[in-house]
């Protein structure tokens, strides 16, 4: 049993491997995040979930998404002026990067960004930046789907997510999990006839036709892989895209990353 305080409130837990973020959220204490997803391992890239942890004389700023709750008696603050300033700056950075993204705009104004002090990212004309590099797509593809069809490429300010050599990835199973987890809508999926197009990966997937309703939906060759990988019910292959998305979304939400098993509730 570990006992800590968050924002002055005493909280006890006997859950091993619980993180500060999980514990805070389970107690109804909100901490903003962008790169966190409960189906995935913590990544610590967006830095929005930073909190102040005080143990003894020392106070440090850490990302709560990965910080293990194991020191008894620490006190945690989640919303000090310092932390607010950091979060506001981070959103200013993201807003300068992706000025057109509604979700970023909303979050920015929610976290106190009032004026635009920073110049927007310069891009070739008629291009806009939609990706905030949270890495959810890369990680869901690797950690959950087990495919690594896409990855981070280049580094620093040049960093982006791409399919190998910016062309069709042979490892892509067309599951569109990347699309579901993307918080900004940067990953777009279009379907036409028995083809599915996933931009920006320049990937085209051929679909099989549903036995029941005649709609083309499941990716050819990979439907069974996904079914086995994710422990999906047999009906999965028979559902139309809309229903399948629903199932997939639910599955993602119930993915228990500690045991790496999917728990499907009826």
């Amino acid at each position: 049993m570990v006992s800590i305080t968050i924002n002055g409130r005493e909280i006890k837990t006997d859950q091993e491997d619980i993180t500060l973020l999980q514990l805070a959220r389970s107690e109804g204490i909100g901490i903003p995040t962008l790169c966190f997803h409960k189906a995935l391992l913590p990544y610590g890239a967006c830095r929005l979930c930073v909190v102040e942890v005080t143990g003894g004389q020392n106070t440090k700023i850490v990302n709560s998404c990965a910080y293990p709750v194991r020191e008894d008696g620490i006190s945690v603050q989640t919303n000090t002026p310092k932390l607010k300033q950091i979060r506001k700056n981070i959103l200013e950075f993201l807003l300068a990067r992706c000025p057109e993204i509604d979700m970023v705009k909303k979050m920015a104004s929610g976290l106190g960004v009032k004026e635009k002090r920073l110049p927007e990212k310069s891009l070739p004309e008629d291009q806009t930046e939609e990706c905030i590099l949270c890495g959810l797509c890369v990680r869901v593809c690797g950690e959950v789907i087990g495919k690594e069809a896409i990855s981070f490429v280049h580094r620093g300010a040049e960093r982006e997510v791409a399919a190998p050599f910016y062309s069709q990835s042979k490892d892509c199973v067309g599951c569109t999990a990347c699309h579901f987890v993307c918080p900004t809508g940067a990953i777009k999926v279009k379907e036409s006839g028995n083809k599915r197009f996933i931009s920006p990966w320049n990937t085209e997937i051929t679909l099989v036709t549903c036995e029941m309703c005649g709609i083309s939906f499941a990716p050819e060759n990979s439907g069974e892989y996904l079914q086995a990988k994710l422990g999906l019910p047999a009906e999965w292959l028979k559902l139309c895209p809309q229903c399948r998305r629903k199932v997939a979304a639910e599955t993602m939400g119930k993915y228990d990353f500690t045991s790496r098993n999917v728990i499907l509730k009826k």
Binding site: G44, L94, R97, R155
Partner: peptide, 18 residues
């Protein structure tokens, strides 16, 4: 440091660039 930043976290990648 900007050229050598891995680009993973926002403060370093974007903050440094600004």
């Amino acid at each position: 440091t900007q050229e050598e930043s891995c680009g993973k976290c926002v403060p370093c990648r974007e903050g440094g660039e600004h």
